[in-house]
Amino acid sequence: MLALESVGYTYAGAGRPALHDVNLELQDGEVVGLVGASEAGKTTLCLVASGLAPRSMGGTLTGRLMLDGVDAAPLAIHQLGERVGIAFASAATQLSGVSGTVYEEVAFGPMNLGLPASDVIARTDRALAALRIGELAGRDPAHLSGGQQQLVAIAGLVALGPAHLVLDEPTAQLDPAGTAMVAEALVRLAADGASILVAEHKTDLLAGICARVVALDAGRILIDGPAADVLGDPRLPELGVVAPAARRLRRAARDVGLPAATLARLEEALA
């Protein structure tokens, strides 16, 4: 379980906190969506949940990040990588840039840990299999599609063996096919027991993969509940969050007073 307990965070040099009193728990195998307008604190929450803030960027953290019941505060940044992995929007910047093949790229993290070569190979093979990108192993990561690169980046995190994954807009730069690839991979990883926090503007994606969604506003959790409830919450537009297309279509259909039979067929199609 990954838990944030009464977490507040202020960036170095900032006058006010970017997060206030955030309490959030992710159970093993749970995919939690994180929505909110730009500047609502999604990225900051991801950085804190992954332990990169304040370790990598300074700033002041209040409250605690708990990983499987253990306070993460004493852990060094390289130790955190084995417990919680973080992926960002740009697949290209997450690749090491020094690997000639996807296999080497996925092995990069375990190699950094100084594990025996047999362990590095076993972890790399497992990660490639988990993301179902084994056929890309010999390819140059720089010459893959955006979706494939993002899968490679996630595989690189999975190879470190973390129980928790934090993804900050992992499909922001991907086309629909790439988005679908990542979504399927996340569902599979959660089925294998990983707890996953996904910050996204694409609520259609979250509706498809999340059991639970959290809405942030000005650094505070405003709504936290089942995905179906939160993504249908009438306050979402005020928070700068666009509801999933299916929900908007349903609402529009009701508003214009479509006949009951047509509405039923529409519901059937959207189900």
């Binding site: 370790r55 990598s56 990588g81 084995e82 997450q94 190699m111 950094n112 190979i121 690189g156």
Partner: peptide, 21 residues
């Protein structure tokens, strides 16, 4: 900035020797 955070998250700053395959 993002690349350096990604590297840190993948253990690049760990002291000691890396494994070479």
């Amino acid at each position: 900035e993002e690349r350096s955070m990604a590297l840190e998250a993948r253990g690049f700053t760990r002291p000691g020797r890396r494994t070479l395959l």
